Amino acid sequence: MTDTLPTRRRSRFWLYAPFVLLVVLAAAWSGFWFHVHGRVVAEIDKALAREVSQGRTWTCADRSVGGFPFRIEVRCTSLTLTSTRWGEAVKVTSGPAVVVGQIYSPGLVILEATSPARATLTEGRTLDVTWKQLDASLAWRQPERFALVAAEPNLTLTTPGIGAENWRASALELHLRRNPTRPATDQAVDFAVSAKGTVLPLIDALLGTPDAGTVDLEGTLTQSEAFRKGFNPDALESWRNANGTLDLGRIAATKGPARIGGSGQLLLEPTHQVGGDLQLAAAGIEQIGGIRVGNLLGGLGGLLGGRPPAAAAAPGLTPLPPVSLRGGRVFLGPLRLPLKPLLPLY
């Protein structure tokens, strides 16, 4: 008689273990996401309260916070900023906006805003802004960085008694980065601005041509901590008192056949007007501020002290006399250009 050994029952642990592990991980991730969600909402409320204490009120209409499982999205059907830091109330209202942060990249946020926007400024002025697409990103890990890209931006400033002035471009890019090499006391921020297809009334009047152009600027803003207060009279006055400067390391612009290159430095004068000096070189310019120059650029530069700027030694450019901004007026060497005076910023 043969004994039959009982069959050993095979464990099904490894059959179900992956699914159990997946459920546990999903539950843990969900808990983590909702924890981050709560922290974000609390930080937003704190930041909004802090802004109110500094004279700025932000209103996010129909605010919602979502983005599960990998993002945190803050959505507003409209976004409004009201500031009392200009003496009169300044109000800026935009269309729908969304701010996105990735759970796996907590040091970076991305903003997408829908056109249009309107700013109600002091002295009854209004600024209307439209664009086809606008995206911005902010990284606050060292070095801090900010970038903005806009397609077909269009700005119209309307001033009572004067009328409307329009600025537009086919594309605009702005990049900011805290300079990691300069002394901390400089509070230096590097910037780069690029605009294509630009139409700028001031430049049109200066060069006497409505042709669209391109503008590229690179440089460094010093004493930038003043602007943590925002962009308002207090911040501008703090920047001026700290001897802040806008150092333009590279200026490159084209407008029709005209080309300009150079460098310079801008600052705020005690009258609160923009002042400074620019060293420029140019080609293809027939007039400057209504003064016919034609082929006289080289002679003017030599006669009035023009010298080739180091950053603008592009082939074919002729040095211009120094361009100076003093007391709201623009001077080409010793000659004052017949342009409207620059208004005080505050």
Rank of each mutant, 00 (worst) to 15 (best):
L320E: 07
V129C: 01
L303Y: 10
D62T: 08
L280S: 04
A313G: 05
F146L: 15
Q265P: 01
G163Y: 07
S83M: 09
G327E: 10
P183E: 09
R168H: 02
A150F: 09
L21Y: 01
V330Y: 11
Q265C: 05
V36H: 11
E269H: 07
I103V: 15
D3K: 14
A282E: 07
R336D: 08
N295W: 02
A283M: 02
I203M: 08
R329E: 06
D62V: 01
G256P: 02
F19C: 06
L296H: 05
L300I: 14
G87C: 05
L217F: 12
E286D: 14
G328I: 11
V330H: 10
P270H: 12
R240H: 06
Q187F: 01
G101H: 04
V92E: 03
R240L: 01
G87P: 08
N232G: 02
P257R: 06
L172H: 10
L300M: 13
G249N: 12
A184L: 14
F70N: 09
N179P: 08
G208C: 04
G124W: 07
A117E: 02
L236V: 12
G306P: 07
S324F: 00
L345K: 07
E51S: 14
V52T: 11
V189H: 08
S115C: 03
P319R: 01
H175P: 00
R125L: 05
D128R: 05
T245M: 03
T185E: 08
V24E: 00
E73S: 13
A192V: 12
L121F: 04
K229W: 10
E218W: 05
L108Y: 14
I291Q: 11
N232Y: 03
L15H: 13
T84R: 05
D128L: 12
P233D: 10
K255V: 00
R10H: 14
V149C: 01
V215R: 10
T209G: 04
E269G: 10
Q142E: 15
D135P: 02
K255C: 05
L246Q: 07
G299K: 14
W239E: 06
N295D: 12
R307K: 14
G264V: 09
R56K: 09
F13H: 09
E286K: 13
S30I: 00
A226M: 04
R141V: 13
V129D: 00
W29K: 00
W239K: 08
V74R: 11
G333F: 09
V20R: 00
